[in-house]
Design a protein around this nucleic acid. Structure first.
Length: 600
RNA sequence: UGAUGUAUAGCUCAAUCGGAAGAGCGCCGGUCUACGAAGCCGGGAAUGCAGGUUCGAGUCCUGCUACGUCAACCA
């Protein structure tokens, strides 16, 4: 039963009977009653007074009387200005508790819609950084939320595994690598390749200093008066990287072998991080295999007259009518650019999956890019392009602004994870919570808690909001945090362990306390919250929800005795409330990709 | 210059078609011989500025200010 919908339609009917006037359902708003007033749900009567021609108070009273007459589970109501606060009977809520305690309550039926969701998609010349962490968390959680609401979701990642960037790492490796491997150095594969990418930059600097006779104290690029991107092209090491790129494109055996070897190390390294984060992809795409895609779409666009060939030979589309600019889609020499590939890849994916929606989890730097992508496909008359959605998110920044690579370790994903696990271990030991744990169990617990802290910290913020992360101040474990929610869950488990497995007959005539009602109302909101989070592609909705639930449970827990309740029926009710609270927290956290422990 | 996003308490964040502005951190004060104190209870503090629409605006409209991002035949 959808209570809010029922109240809404009942209000419309009552209004018609009372005032012989029709109000649209859209003008009736139902909210949860605010805490400082008595009631469960509130009907806002301000919009109705025009037609009722009575004061807000009188309108509220009349509707309240009519509703109470019609719906036998309304126990009472009060009117404050234009707010009609309605209370339901205790029996009604206890029946809802029974309803909640069934699997059907949180299960959405399959809706037959297919979703393709792309996320993570790193460049293979560097380890994952904090931005990828946010991306992975959003991508994973959104996938879980969509699945929970009935979608059939396929996740994909695309690796930017070719191009000048990886060739730079290769060039530096050839120059100074001495055959180093992850095994010989003990360095994680993606970090090893990242180190050579950094080394490439250092070699560029060395060579420029030597060439222009710039001392170590002076800033090279200021001294020689050239942009870094321009100056580096003058160096021998850059020439070698460029040469590797050409050889790669020509299919040179040795070059391809080295490229495969080094990328292989990177994937091994990424896999370790993925396993730690708990993410996985149904399908991997590689730019080396897709970068030539898109030419067909260009031809199609030219034939249809949607694209045009400029005098210089480049293919473009004029998006000025849509408030954008002229956008080049193919270089004048006929080679692809990023957009060409993305157009082609989108078509290939549609041909393969025939998905109803295609979601790209990509940072908001690329808002413009995805607007163009979607528009191009729509203008080509592809219906499925309407289902393209760019799940855009803001950057994670340090207190001084954007994380720069030279700030080094602070922005590295693996370091960040290691740090939060270390803190989890430290705090857990401080509290003496692992007595009786084996070493293996303890380690698993630290990981569960640490990852919860990290994941929740990032997911609780709306995607469009930037996150300020101060590496100097460690992620908190108190208050609005993942460990807080976990610890509330652990309490519910503790209660159930002590109680045992006895059945819990409910007496629907048990009088309810406020904190019990508050808890039931919130649990009852769970399916609506999941739906809302799915519709808005927003895991933060779920994070806020589980936090609220944990908070309300703690209040209930502190106010009322559970196992030592005065009467048997109160005890049974409260134990069942503890159980469904725990179940709901666990389900909600799962949608965030966060595990809950039995003890902590 | 244009497009786009953001601006809420000292700090970090919430606020479901416009409907009664909420948390956490920090600070102060209570609360464990224990149904688990990573908790609970109490205290003070906020919608960038100026207009407009509305019974009602943090939310919608106009203008302004500040910060971010984008506007490559880069990715």
């Amino acid at each position: 039963m959808n209570i809010e919908q029922l109240l809404k339609s009942s209000t419309v009917q009552a209004f018609q009977a009372l005032f012989a006037a029709e109000v649209p359902e859209t003008s009736v708003t139902i909210n949860l009653t605010k805490k400082e007033f008595e009631g469960d749900y509130t009907v806002v009567t301000f919009p109705l007074v025009k037609l009722s021609k009575r004061s807000p108070e009188e309108t509220g009273r009349l509707i309240g009387d009519a509703l109470k007459e019609k719906l036998n589970f309304i126990s009472k109501f009060n009117v404050v200005k234009g707010f009609l606060n309605i209370s339901f009977t205790d029996q009604f809520w206890i029946e809802r508790l029974q309803e909640i305690n069934t699997n059907a309550f949180t299960a959405f039926p399959k809706n037959g819609k297919k979703v393709l969701l792309e996320y993570c998609s790193p460049n293979t010349n560097k380890p994952l950084h904090i931005g990828h962490v946010r991306n992975m968390l959003l991508g994973y959680s959104t996938t879980e939320i969509l699945k929970a609401t009935g979608y059939d979701v396929t996740t994909v990642s695309i690796y930017n595994d070719r191009g000048i960037a990886i060739c730079k790492s290769m060039a530096a490796y050839i120059e100074r690598g001495n055959g180093a491997t992850p095994q010989s150095t003990g360095i994680k594969g993606d970090h090893l390749i990242g180190d050579y990418y950094v080394l490439f930059g250092q070699i560029v600097n060395e060579q420029l200093r030597a060439k222009y006779n710039v001392s170590a104290e002076q800033d090279i690029f200021k001294t020689i008066g050239k942009e870094k991107e321009v100056a580096e092209q003058e160096t021998e090491i850059f020439a070698k990287a460029k040469d590797l790129l050409l050889k790669w494109e020509a299919g040179d055996t040795d070059t391809i072998a080295l490229w495969k070897k080094m990328n292989g190390w990177v994937y091994e390294g990424y896999q370790v991080t993925y396993d730690m984060m708990g993410v996985k992809f149904d399908k991997d795409y590689y730019e080396s295999q897709t970068y030539k895609l898109g030419k067909d779409i260009i031809d199609e666009g030219l034939t249809k007259g949607v694209f045009y060939k400029r005098a210089d030979g480049a293919v473009a589309i004029d998006l000025t009518p849509d408030g954008l600019d002229e956008k080049i889609l193919l270089r004048s020499d006929g080679t692809s650019i990023y957009m060409t590939q993305d157009l082609g890849t989108a078509q290939v994916r549609y041909d393969e999956y025939h998905m109803d929606r295609m979601i790209y989890v990509v940072a908001n730097e690329q808002d413009y890019h995805f607007k163009v992508l979607k528009l191009c496909l729509q203008k080509l008359g592809k219906q499925w392009a309407d289902g393209i959605h760019h799940l855009s998110y803001s950057m994670v920044e340090s207190p001084t602004g954007r994380f720069k690579s030279r700030e080094g370790k602070t922005a590295d994903a693996d370091d960040m994870i290691a740090e939060v696990l270390r803190i989890a271990e430290e705090k857990t030991k401080e509290l003496g919570k692992t007595d009786g744990f084996t070493e293996e169990e303890a380690q698993h617990l630290y990981r569960t808690i640490g990852l919860a802290a990290l994941k929740y910290f990032i997911l609780k913020v709306n995607p469009y909001q930037k996150i300020i992360f101060n590496p100097e101040e460690s992620i908190d474990f108190h208050g609005n945090t993942g460990p807080f929610v976990q610890s509330s869950y652990v309490r519910t488990r503790s209660i159930l362990r002590k109680h045992g497995n006895d059945s819990l007959p409910l007496d629907t005539a048990t009088p309810l306390h406020n904190s019990e009602r508050e808890l039931m109302l919130l649990i009852y909101e769970y399916p609506g919250t999941v739906k809302y989070a799915a519709d808005n592609y927003n895991p933060a909705e779920m994070a806020n929800y589980v936090y609220n639930l944990a908070k309300v449970y703690n209040k209930f827990y502190n106010e009322l005795p559970i196992l030592t309740a005065e009467t048997e029926r109160e005890k049974n009710l409260r134990i069942l409330l503890s159980k469904v609270t725990g179940d709901t927290i666990r389900k909600g956290m799962k949608l965030l990709g966060i595990e809950v422990p039995e003890r902590m």
